[in-house]
């Protein structure tokens, strides 16, 4: 089954959406016939900025789109890509669906859990890695597949996973 990362305590700083991100959000909103369509693009921008969707940013976004924080939360919680809590610097997402599991995604996950010392859903103590299991990533022809942040890694073997982890500072 898929897992979403369990929250680890966020520090209490108030996250403010930087002006330059806010003006990008307003620009996107003006391109659509209805402002509310900027919701997903704006949440992606916010997550690019903070690595997750902080509550203070939800309130600001609600104001910018003339909606309520509740409605923004309803969206954030529906989509698995939006992190409701901080994740590690590198978010490793391994596909667990059929084509990948036929070609050994389970071994890849076992290798990662033993190497990183965490289970799917967890983050390493130094906050460097978060491990998640996800559904099909649309790359089944090069299974097994994982993503780290925005990058796809395909045709995985344990050896290849080691090489990839070694390149991540």
């Amino acid at each position: 089954m898929s897992t979403t990362p369990t929250p680890f305590a966020a520090n209490a700083t108030d996250y403010k959406i930087p002006d330059k991100v806010m003006s990008k959000i307003n620009e996107i909103a003006s391109q659509y016939p209805e402002k509310n369509s900027a919701m997903l693009p704006a949440l992606h921008l916010i997550q690019d900025e903070f690595g997750w969707i902080p509550p203070s940013a939800v309130r600001q976004l609600a104001d910018a789109l003339d909606t309520t924080p509740n409605k923004v939360y309803a969206v954030v919680s529906f989509y698995t890509m939006f992190n409701q809590a901080p994740v590690g610097k590198y978010h490793i997402q391994v596909c667990r669906n059929v084509s990948c599991s036929l070609l050994g995604s389970k071994h890849i996950v076992d290798h990662l859990t033993s190497k990183l010392g965490i289970q799917p859903g967890q983050t390493t103590e130094n906050k460097k890695f978060t491990l998640s299991l996800v559904e099909c990533l649309g790359a089944c022809g090069t299974a097994p597949v994982m993503m780290i942040n925005d990058t796809y890694y395909e045709n995985l073997t344990s050896g290849k996973v080691d090489e990839i982890l070694n390149t991540l500072a």
Binding site: S37, L40, L43, Y79, T80, M81, F82
Partner: peptide, 10 residues
């Protein structure tokens, strides 16, 4: 044409 990215919901 505008491009919009979804967010992980089949």
């Amino acid at each position: 044409i505008l491009v919009m990215r979804g967010a992980g919901a089949y």
